[in-house]
Amino acid sequence: MSLSRQHELHKRRAGRNKGVGIVLAALIAIVFGLTVVKVSSDNFTMQSANEVNNGN
């Protein structure tokens, strides 16, 4: 018994892989979007070099 190219098993795995791919792409877009929004908000402040050196 051989596996044909159009076996049901392949279709299921292909669909699953596609789904996981879309979810991962969406996750990247969300993390990127959140980072942009957070960094550009008025509340966002960077630590100065002195603060970093003083361990604050």
């Binding site: 018994m1 051989s2 049901e8 098993l9 789904g19 996981v20």
Partner: peptide, 21 residues
Amino acid sequence: SDASIQTTIRHGEAEFGDYFA
């Protein structure tokens, strides 16, 4: 050989929609 490859749908070979459900 090809004969050793499982050709039936195993328990757990779900579609993406099954996980979403």
